[in-house]
Design a protein around this nucleic acid. Structure first.
Length: 631
DNA sequence: TCGCGCGTGATACGAGGTGG
DNA sequence: CCACCTCGTATCACGCGCGA
């Protein structure tokens, strides 16, 4: 037998377990602990059955068609079917493909799917049915059972189906049961605890006291080191005439560059002078900036303007600039002209950037609706970018531009957004803006504890909220879903869309000030768990005491699960109220034990048959949404 | 009202220390 | 070197808070 594939597999495997690599990365072995402890030699690779199994996989990897499970190859079914299908269903990183170092087996390949429509039952047999590999160990295929593959006398490496320490129900859907070829750890059994003698207790106590003393000494030294560090920074700041905060910034990798230059004093004064001089002048005779600047220099009264008035003028300049850059064009003609000029500017910038830096990329621009003026345009940085579009998007730039224009002309438009629309959109902009500025995909907006959970924790704040009474909430911004007034919602959404209202990082001074303020605010304590003090043993699955466990279980959760189960049975992917349910996220679900029965898992969705992670599930949903929209 | 994420309470387990 | 103990951390289950 040619073992070349297998040798490669072993090499790959040793790379995977390299301690320098991420042991939990995709395609790596994960034994839930130190993977280096894993003894691969425990498997007898000279076992003829195992050799056949690897030979079979290598032949498939070489492109040979796999035999259908339902019409033959019973041996392969028992030895490899569970091996591969288990990995598909569980999504565990330690699957057949990984072990063999062959990525082709990582995807849910149809090669091993049976010739039956009832794939669910094949992958996830009902609790009252014998699971795949149980059947393999049972009477039906005893001649080719996986039990023959592994020496049952060696408990440390054999399938724990034979391990009496585990309850039989646990094995029904366990990873190890679905992957009977895996070397398996024994269940750890602790010896009964012995009571200490007086001398032992005294020794232990003395050692404990000594350890505490050493920990205290270390803590004292660390505090001392911190104080010395602060003192050195303060001295250095004094010597170089800079603020200690500046030195601390230099010590970190945080950027000190600001995104935008702040409005200056002279700009604010010119703005005031323009209001004085130009408000009464007709168009065409208004003074221009150089003339206004000269007038400012001569106006001694204006030059001694109060700080408050100057700040007010700066805010007005900022607002005016924002209106110029983000405000809607007043009519079709000006919008069309803006479109044409700006698109040419962008095209020029694309060309120039490519020539200056070699950057590649492409862009497509079309008027937002058929009523607007302006010709669709596409631009690329580097002619190679066209090849990219052709190769990876299977279209040409012209086609893409045409499709964009068509899409813009035919999409829903003209109707004013409804209140739920505005609520949802505003909420999305706020939440996505928060995720963007923090670079954290999982963070969520907290309106109720905004000052503590968002500002205090992440040091960012939402600035530029519309100056409306409803937003002057002591707890911070209120959730858009509580605003029922169309005009208020439109003001909020417009500010968010235009960028007038956005997330901003706080300066160190602001953070310190906010933290001081937080100290004066009452802390809302979390309620104490209602079951505090009670013993809550680990939940067991499928044991004979299930009824007792279920009776103890939270009635609320049971009600929810039952309701969900029944509604899902009836309506597939929607709840009883017709609301679409999101697929459970793998990151959390994968950590939990499977449900105890099919009672609460009656939909494909819950089973997560495709084995994708949560992100992909979302993508799938999005695709469906878009399809529905198209329909 | 539902579902998700966080935090809490509990257990399991491994590493390290200690004594025989 | 082994047995035993302590402690810290990982993991699990689930209640609470909160957004949608």
């Amino acid at each position: 037998m040619d073992n070349s594939h297998f040798d490669i597999a072993m090499n790959n495997r040793s790379q995977h377990t390299d301690s320098s690599a991420d042991p939990f990365g995709p395609g790596n072995l994960d034994f839930g602990g130190s993977s280096d402890d894993f003894d691969f030699g425990a498997i007898d690779f000279n076992d003829p059955m195992l050799k056949d199994a690897f030979d079979f996989i290598n032949r498939i990897a070489d492109g040979e068609t796999a035999p259908s499970l339902s019409n033959g190859s019973a041996d392969m079914h028992s030895s490899m079917g569970a091996f591969q299908l288990g990995s598909m269903a569980s999504g565990n990183s330690y699957d057949g493909g990984d072990m063999l170092g062959n990525p082709r087996f990582l995807s849910p390949s149809p090669l091993f799917l049976p010739d039956t429509d009832d794939t669910n039952d094949f992958l996830f047999p009902a609790s009252d049915e014998a699971p795949l590999s149980t059947a393999a160990n049972g009477e039906e295929s005893s001649s080719s059972s996986t039990g023959e593959l592994i020496d049952s006398s060696n408990q440390s490496t054999s399938n724990p189906a034979n391990n009496a320490a585990l309850p039989a129900s646990f094995l029904l859907s366990s990873h190890v049961e679905r992957n009977p070829l895996l070397p398996t750890q024994t269940v750890r059994v602790h010896p009964p605890k012995k009571t200490l003698t007086t001398a032992q207790a005294q020794t232990m106590n003395a050692a404990k006291a000594e350890k505490a003393k050493r920990a205290m000494l270390l803590k004292t030294d660390v505090i001392k080191l911190f104080d010395e560090h602060e003192e050195k920074i303060a001295n250095l700041a004094k010597v170089h005439s800079v603020k200690p905060e500046y030195l601390k910034r230099l010590l970190t990798t945080a950027s000190t560059l600001k995104r935008k230059r702040a409005t200056g004093r002279i700009q604010a004064l010119v703005h005031i002078k323009a209001q004085e001089e130009n408000s009464t002048r007709p168009v065409g005779q208004k003074l221009k900036a150089p003339a206004l600047r000269k007038l400012v220099d001569k106006d001694t009264e204006l030059l001694e303007i109060s700080k408050e008035k100057l700040e007010q003028a700066k805010r007005e300049v900022d607002a005016q600039r924002l209106l110029s850059t983000r405000g809607a064009r007043p009519n079709i003609a000006s919008a069309g002209k803006d479109f044409g000029c700006t698109s040419r500017l962008i095209k020029n910038e694309f060309d120039s950037l490519h020539l200056r830096t070699g950057a590649v990329g492409f862009g497509v621009l079309a008027p937002g609706s058929g009523d607007d003026r302006g010709l669709p345009i596409w631009f690329v940085a580097g002619s190679n970018s066209v090849d990219f579009v052709r190769a990876h998007l299977n279209t040409t730039m012209w086609d893409l531009t045409g499709q964009l224009e068509l899409w813009a002309n035919t999409r829903k438009s003209g109707k004013p957004p409804t209140i739920p629309d505005l609520q949802s959109r505003s909420s999305n902009v706020i939440a996505s803006g928060l995720r963007y500025i923090l670079g954290n995909k999982s963070v969520g907006m907290n309106y109720v504890n905004y000052h503590r959970s968002i500002v205090g924790k992440y040091h960012v704040c939402l600035i530029g909220l519309p100056d409306l009474a409803i937003f002057k909430n002591a707890n911070g911004p209120i959730t858009p879903f509580l605003i029922k007034d169309q005009a208020t919602l439109e003001a909020l959404y417009t500010a968010l869309e235009a960028g007038a209202c956005h997330w901003a990082r706080m300066s160190p001074d602001d953070i310190a000030e906010h933290n001081e303020w937080l100290k004066t605010q009452p802390v809302k304590e979390r309620s104490v768990r209602s079951d505090k003090g009670q013993k809550r043993g680990r939940r067991t699955r499928g044991t004979e005491s299930d009824d007792e466990n279920e009776s103890r279980e939270s009635s609320r959760k049971r009600k929810r699960a039952n309701k969900k189960g029944s509604s899902l049975q009836n309506s597939g992917r929607t709840t009883a109220k017709g609301r679409k349910t999101a697929a459970p996220k793998k990151s959390r679900v994968s950590k939990q034990l499977p449900p105890r029965s099919r009672e609460t898992v009656d939909s494909d969705e819950d089973l997560d048959l495709d084995g994708d992670d949560g992100e992909n599930d979302n993508e799938h949903d999005d695709d469906e949404d878009s399809e529905n929209d198209d329909n």
